[in-house]
Amino acid sequence: RALPCPAHVVFRYQAGREDELTITEGEWLEVIEEGDADEWVKARNQHGEVGFVPERYLNFPD
């Protein structure tokens, strides 16, 4: 997929490290980079905060 792209959060995730982003179910993010580890992506939330989130917690519109 082309980046950046929108993504809808389907599961809540609490950041466990400083470089991760806490996300809430129902929130929209902008995915800006593929992650440095499998199944992680770097995203920006509506407040401009950036961090890594688990890709499987997101839904990408067609």
Rank of each mutant, 00 (worst) to 15 (best):
I23A: 02
Y13H: 10
L21N: 00
E39S: 13
V50W: 05
D36W: 13
R1H: 08
D19E: 15
E49D: 10
A43E: 01
L21V: 05
G48A: 05
A2F: 15
Q14P: 03
D36T: 12
F52T: 06
A7I: 00
D38I: 11
H8S: 04
G26C: 02
C5H: 09
E49H: 12
A2R: 14
Y57K: 07
T24M: 12
W40E: 08
P54F: 06
E55Q: 09
K42N: 03
L21E: 02
T22D: 10
E55T: 13
G26H: 05
E30Q: 12
G16Y: 15
V41G: 02
T24K: 14
R17T: 09
W40L: 09
V10Q: 02
G51C: 00
F60I: 09
G26R: 03
Q46G: 11
G35T: 14
A2N: 15
P61E: 10
E20S: 05
E25C: 06
F52G: 04
R56Q: 13
C5V: 05
D19C: 14
T24P: 01
H8R: 08
E18Y: 07
E34D: 05
E49I: 15
H47V: 13
W40C: 08
W40T: 10
E20Q: 13
E30F: 06
R44V: 09
Q14N: 13
V10A: 08
N59M: 10
A15E: 05
P4K: 05
V50G: 03
Y13E: 00
A15L: 02
E39L: 09
R1T: 06
I23C: 07
F52P: 01
W40R: 15
F11A: 15
P61G: 14
V41T: 03
H47G: 14
G16R: 11
A15T: 02
E25R: 06
A15V: 03
R12V: 05
R1W: 04
E30S: 10
R12L: 07
H47Q: 12
H8Q: 09
D62A: 13
P4W: 03
R56W: 07
A7K: 00
E18K: 07
H47W: 08
I32E: 04
E30G: 01
E39Q: 12
A15C: 04
R44H: 02
W28R: 14
R12H: 08
N59F: 10
V10E: 07
V41M: 08
E27F: 01
W40Y: 14
Q14W: 04
E34G: 09
V10Y: 10
A2C: 14
P4G: 06
E39I: 10
P61C: 15
R12A: 14
F52L: 15
G16T: 12
L3P: 07
R12T: 13
E20N: 05
Y57Q: 06
R56T: 13
T22N: 15
P54A: 08
P4F: 05
P6Q: 08
E34N: 12
D19F: 13
P54D: 04
E33M: 07
L3A: 02
E33N: 08
V53K: 00
A37L: 12
H8L: 08
N59Q: 13
G16Q: 13
V31E: 01
E55M: 14
L58R: 01
A7R: 03
P6H: 12
H47L: 13
W40D: 14
D62L: 09
R56Y: 09
C5Q: 09
F60D: 02
I32C: 04
I32D: 02
R17I: 04
V53F: 01
E20A: 08
A37C: 15
H8V: 06
N45L: 02
E39P: 08
R56H: 10
G48S: 09
L58N: 00
W28H: 13
R12Y: 14
N45Q: 01
A37R: 15
Y57A: 15
A2E: 15
D62R: 06
A15M: 01
G51H: 00
V50F: 06
V9E: 05
T22P: 02
N45A: 03
E18L: 07
P54Q: 10
R44M: 08
T22A: 08
Y57T: 14
W28D: 11
G16K: 14
L58F: 01
E27K: 05
Q46H: 09
R44C: 08
L29E: 04
R56P: 09
E18V: 09
V9T: 04
V9N: 05
F11G: 15
F60A: 04
Q14V: 09
E34I: 09
V50E: 13
E27W: 01
N59S: 12
P6L: 06
V9H: 01
V41H: 00
V50H: 04
C5G: 05
P54K: 11
G16D: 07
P61F: 12
F60N: 04
E55C: 12
F60W: 11
E39N: 15
C5P: 01
E25Q: 07
P61K: 13
G35I: 07
T24H: 14
E18N: 11
E20H: 09
V31S: 02
A7L: 01
A2H: 07
R17F: 08
Q46K: 14
E39K: 13
A43C: 12
E55L: 14
V31A: 05
G26I: 04
E55R: 14
G16H: 12
E30R: 04
V9D: 02
R44S: 07
F52M: 12
D36Y: 09
Q46A: 14
Y57H: 15
E39T: 13
R44K: 13
F52W: 14
R56S: 14
E49N: 14
V9C: 06
D36A: 09
N59L: 09
Y57V: 15
L29I: 13
E18M: 07
L58S: 03
V50Y: 09
E30I: 06
L21M: 08
P4C: 06
T24L: 11
A7V: 05
D38T: 10
E49R: 11
G26Q: 06
P6C: 10
Q46R: 12
L3D: 04
N45D: 03
Y13I: 02
R44F: 02
H47I: 08
Y57R: 05
L29T: 02
I23N: 00
H47M: 12
E39V: 08
E18D: 14
G35W: 06
N45M: 01
R1Y: 10
Y13L: 03
E20M: 04
G48C: 07
Q46Y: 10
V50R: 03
K42T: 11
K42M: 08
G26K: 05
V50T: 10
D62I: 05
Y13Q: 05
R17L: 05
N45S: 03
L3R: 06
T24S: 11
F52K: 14
E18P: 11
Q14S: 10
P6S: 06
R1N: 13
